[in-house]
């Protein structure tokens, strides 16, 4: 069984990318959110463009708002999304 994380996209990102989730293999020792972003951008130009179009991109790791320096390890859930607009 490979070491995987689930990556989710919401709102304008999900719409532009055309999918709401993907499964990504990472080293067992983990990677930063920034490195994970670079990895999925390298594998998919549509995702790279969609993320680049979000100057205020937000990230949550395991459903908690996070930074791009946060370490992600196998089994984690990482969500990318635009600034939130509730209420």
């Amino acid at each position: 069984m490979a070491d995987r994380v689930t990556v989710l996209f919401f709102a304008a990102l999900r719409e532009q990318i055309g999918q709401e989730s993907l499964s990504v293999t990472i080293p067992a020792s983990g990677v930063t959110v920034a490195a994970l972003r670079t990895q999925i951008e390298g594998a998919n130009p549509t995702i790279a463009q969609a993320l680049a179009d979000q100057p205020k991109l937000r990230v949550a790791v395991n459903r908690t708002l996070s930074t791009f320096e946060q370490l992600v390890t196998p089994g984690d859930e990482v969500a990318f999304f635009p600034p939130m607009t509730g209420g």
Binding site: F10, A60, L65, A79, M84, G86
Partner: peptide, 14 residues
Amino acid sequence: LIDRLKTGAPFWKR
């Protein structure tokens, strides 16, 4: 509650 919710809870409007 409403001030924090608007930009702090994961909702998006289209």
